[in-house]
């Protein structure tokens, strides 16, 4: 059997979605960005909206996201993607608009813009990749860095007394009346990725119905920044990150899920699951 014998339409079991371009992604092996990109691209393909969507890319590892999606894209200044998405959606309400940001971009420098876009209830889809670190600039502390976790700007572990607490921005946003759908997902296992795809599909479908902000946090790893192998990073994320950032829907159909609060614990005192992550 030759190669040509095998490459036939009837033998096709997987085809890359045409919403992704041929460009080779620059992401590190094991990084979650590529998986989330593919999920978004597949959702766009399945919904048949490739010719009616504008993406907003951030500053950070995914700054070049526009090279990988075959849809129109606007690259925003650091942190300002929600402002950009708000304007475009208001000026082109017929178009599907999504922003794609990391945790430095969204939770730190762009904290104001995301809060106000959510508070205004902009009819947009927001994707938030949370890996607890600044990847592109070389592994500095992010607002989402876990307490005790080491980065190059907290080499002795994040000390909340000096560096502030780990920020659960998604939980904050879920409490704003402008958000309609708020969820935290992950892509570290095939099962998680499938669930994540369902959530992202929902986030785009809501836009069709003019429902307000649909916000999907994807808790991810940064094996380069965390200085681990991809497998170690995923395991570490499951054992540590997901305790402070539990997965699941926080707000569905505009209603806050009280069960989620129970799982997270109250907001007014440090979470009891905080532990020292300091390496020996």
């Amino acid at each position: 059997m030759t190669r040509e014998d095998i490459i036939k339409p009837e033998n096709l079991v997987y085809k890359r979605t045409p919403v992704l371009t041929d460009a080779t992604m620059h992401y590190c092996p094991g990084c979650g960005h590529g998986v989330v990109h593919r999920i978004i691209a597949e959702v766009i393909e399945e919904m048949g909206i490739q010719d009616n969507v504008i993406g907003i890319s951030p500053v950070g590892c995914s700054v070049l996201a526009y090279n990988y999606f075959d849809v129109d894209f606007v690259e925003a200044a650091h942190g300002r993607a929600p402002a950009c998405a708000s304007a475009i959606k208001r000026l082109r309400p017929e178009t599907f608009v999504f922003s794609y940001q990391g945790d430095g971009d969204l939770a730190s420098i762009g904290c104001g813009e995301v809060v106000h876009a959510c508070n205004r209830g902009e009819n947009i889809t927001m994707i938030f990749i949370n890996n607890g670190i600044y990847g592109m600039t070389g592994g500095q502390m992010a607002p989402t860095t876990l307490e005790g976790m080491e980065t190059v700007t907290c080499p002795y572990g994040r000390d909340p007394k000096i560096m502030g607490h780990t920020m659960r921005l998604t939980e904050m946003l879920a409490q704003l009346p402008g958000t309609y759908y708020v969820t935290r997902q992950a892509v570290y296992t095939p099962a998680a990725a499938r669930k994540c795809k369902k959530a992202i599909r929902q986030a785009f479908e809501n836009q069709k119905l003019n429902k307000g902000v649909s916000f999907v946090e994807v808790t991810s790893n940064c094996n380069s920044g965390w200085k681990m192998t991809p497998v170690q990073a995923n395991k570490w994320m499951e054992e540590n990150t997901l305790k402070y950032f539990p997965l699941g829907d926080m707000k569905v159909d505009g209603k806050f899920d009280p069960k989620f609060i129970e799982r997270v614990g109250t907001f007014d005192q440090p979470n009891e699951t905080i532990f020292s992550l300091r390496k020996k």
Binding site: I54, V74, I88, L91, G112
Partner: peptide
Amino acid sequence: ASINMVYAGAAA
């Protein structure tokens, strides 16, 4: 936010 809204609106 204003100027970045302008940036994006112009981009569109």
